[in-house]
Nucleic acid binder design. Structure first.
Lengths: 93, 93
DNA sequence: ATAAAGTGGTTTATTTTATAAACCAAATTT
DNA sequence: AAATTTGGTTTATAAAATAAACCACTTTAT
């Protein structure tokens, strides 16, 4: 009757991050923080979880002298997101 | 950009319960437990939360000698569900 | 009649998760 | 050179979900 909701995606902040990343080539930490309106600490933790699941890739580098964290959705992340959306529909349609 | 997701509804089990109740006149504890596949303890706790928020009404009675718990969505619950679904769309569309 | 098992739950304890607070290293501003 | 800002991470706390125990009965089997 109801499809299971991937708990990693069923989180407001992680879902927002994935929702952003699915629509862009890449996005950096600062951008994600502004768009989601969350705290840096929370974002840091949630990005880690998404990365550990292989849903996003994180590249750290320096832009001049400042650190820079760029995130990008992976194919696995894309698939998981699509499945999650599909599962959600079993609840809301 | 992203609408807030009502945390009371952003829970797999509570969402499933609301999803069932929105489509029927009423449903009892046993039916909800079977449809959702959850444990009685978990269902009991989550129904309480929905009831305390005024999203569902709970009537307790006896059917012959056995206790019976009947749940019904309220107008407030109906509205909250509709809003939640609408908010979700800002993430998945 | 009594013990064992089942029904329909509730309550309490444990684990997991989310969130916030504190911190760090370096850069920039005053 | 002290204070503030940037771009984060780490750690502590609060909240939530889940599971395990339990309770009050009823039904079935002995």
């Amino acid at each position: 009757m109801f499809k299971e909701l991937n708990p990693l995606l069923h989180s407001e902040l992680r879902l927002a991050v994935m929702s952003i990343l699915i629509g862009v080539e890449s996005a950096d930490f600062v951008y994600l923080r502004k768009q989601t309106g969350t705290t840096a600490g929370n974002l840091s933790v949630q990005l880690d979880k998404l990365a550990k699941a292989g849903y996003i890739g994180i590249e750290k580098s320096f832009r001049g002298k400042m650190p820079r964290t760029v995130c990008r959705i992976t194919e696995r992340g894309r698939n998981a997101f699509a499945e999650y959306v599909d599962a959600l529909k079993s609840y809301i349609e």
